[in-house]
């Protein structure tokens, strides 16, 4: 699994598309109002799935652990949402928490971790 992380609008998906020759049909884009689907080559905007999980009482980390085989050959992309002040709203705090725990797990499982900064790659692992 290849894990790509970075702040909003840094060009994470564009980088992945270029580097791994991804077509649109190979990308599952998470949104805050739908469940995740594994199986496509790339799962994008994982932070939207964790928001969906927070709002629906789902443990995202548990889901990823259970579905380990389904994503282990995938490219996973998540937004870095960890540098601001502690959010005031509980759901936003839980969201940051859950996303952080999931990212740490994915990072440890990944064969490579890349951070995208202003469109440039920074190898973290």
């Amino acid at each position: 699994m290849i894990f790509i992380i970075g702040g909003a609008y840094q060009g994470k998906l564009e980088y992945a598309k270029g580097k791994y020759s991804l077509s649109s049909g190979q990308i599952f884009t998470c949104t805050e109002d739908k469940n995740i689907e594994f199986g496509l080559r790339c799962i994008y905007n994982i932070q939207e799935y964790t928001l969906y999980c927070v709002r629906n009482g789902i443990d995202a980390l548990k889901v990823f652990k259970e579905k380990h085989d389904a994503w282990q050959d995938s490219i996973l992309i998540c937004e870095d949402i960890f540098c601001g002040v502690v959010p005031l709203g509980k759901d936003m705090r839980d969201w940051r928490d859950m996303t952080g725990k999931l990212c740490s797990y994915l990072s440890s499982e990944a064969e490579s971790v890349t951070r995208i900064f202003c469109g440039l790659e920074q190898k973290l692992k």
Binding site: G7, D80, I81, F82, G84, V85, P87, R96
Partner: peptide
């Protein structure tokens, strides 16, 4: 660098962040 916090901003702010990032990527 204003892109790594856990906040859902209003449309105007999101629009500004996306725009600044586009310029940052161009300059980078």
């Amino acid at each position: 660098y204003i892109y790594s916090d856990a906040v859902r901003y209003d449309a105007v702010t999101e629009n500004y962040r996306a725009s600044l990032a586009a310029i940052d990527r161009f300059l980078a």
